[in-house]
Nucleic acid binder design. Structure first.
Length: 278
DNA sequence: AATTGTACCTGTCAGC
DNA sequence: TGCTGACAGGTACAAT
């Protein structure tokens, strides 16, 4: 569900809502939401909720960050609470929510931070140093920060994967998901099933520009609430109203009026225009 | 090594 | 109306 623009919207909301507040306690309704790492530092394991709460109690939130689709709640002792919302996760500031997998209560007692997640794919865990977390370390560059475009382009054009799959690979670039990849490929005039290695450098340069545009516009309009996504106050985003092709198979292409075609690329649904995407 | 398939869950919707 | 199957914004791990 939430891709970079959705997670970034939540990050900005939470920066205003919880920074400076002290965590008083946790309500863990679903212990499977809590994940951690074993002594070897690599394998994920479940965590004792009491120990988890003990680690957070009394800590103040010093800042809220984001890396790719990972949300980072930085604590005043240098550790961070990491959250990944996966497909259906929400992080909402408001009255206690009975469906929450985890609720974080703060010292001001006005509201609670509820982690709700119908499909239960999401995860919350603690990293003593978020930069050393294995999930974070595996990520490629941030698309909206300065990056070596030549290196990125060369890496992409060396890949034998389909371009849709290559862009969804978080090692290549962090934060893209199915919606924004589908939109960026349409803007760039590139078919999702085309092999990345058939692209020219001019193609990948244009593509990078469109990736940045769709992400910026997504943030500007507070994310796509196609189904489950809500911001940190529980409100829908408006970016879905502006999508050109995602979810619009069978409708006319906004550019050339040919009928948009739905397809599966490596198991993920996508949409493209058979006339103006090559 | 890199790419693709499968598993993890629950809810919704189209078709019968 | 109710059943069944396909599908949903993601990622870790297994298989190739």
């Amino acid at each position: 569900m939430p891709e970079l623009p959705e997670v970034e919207t939540i990050r900005r909301d939470l920066a205003d809502l919880v920074v400076g507040k002290m965590i008083s306690h946790l309500v863990v309704a679903d212990r499977r939401a809590l994940e951690g790492f074993g002594p070897d530092g690599s394998r994920r394991r479940r965590v004792d909720p009491v120990a988890f709460e003990g680690r957070l109690k009394g800590r103040r939130v010093s800042g809220v960050g984001r890396r790719g689709k990972y949300l980072l709640l930085h604590l005043d002792d240098g550790a961070s609470l990491l959250v990944h919302l996966r497909m259906t996760g929400r992080l909402v500031w408001g009255p206690p929510d009975l469906r929450a997998r985890v609720q974080i209560l703060f010292d001001d007692e006005s509201n609670v931070l509820s982690f709700c997640d119908t499909r239960r794919f999401g995860e919350v865990w603690i990293a003593e140093d978020w930069r050393e977390d294995p999930s974070i370390k595996a990520l490629g560059p941030e698309p909206l920060e300065p990056l070596d475009a030549d290196e990125w382009s060369r890496g992409l054009r060396r890949s034998s994967a389909k371009i849709q799959a290559a862009l969804l690979d978080q090692k290549r670039m962090a934060g893209l998901g199915n919606i924004y990849v589908t939109e960026a490929l349409w803007r760039a005039g590139i078919r999702p099933a085309r092999r990345a290695r058939t692209l020219r450098e001019s193609d990948t340069n244009i593509l990078l520009g469109h990736i940045r545009d769709v992400l910026q516009e997504g943030i500007l309009h507070r994310g796509v609430s196609f189904r489950d996504y809500r911001d940190a106050q529980g409100n829908k985003g408006r970016a879905g109203e502006r999508l050109a092709v995602y979810g619009k198979a069978g409708k006319p292409c906004p550019r050339c009026r040919a009928t948009l075609q739905g397809a599966k690329v490596n198991g993920r649904g996508t949409v493209f225009c058979p006339r103006c995407q090559k």
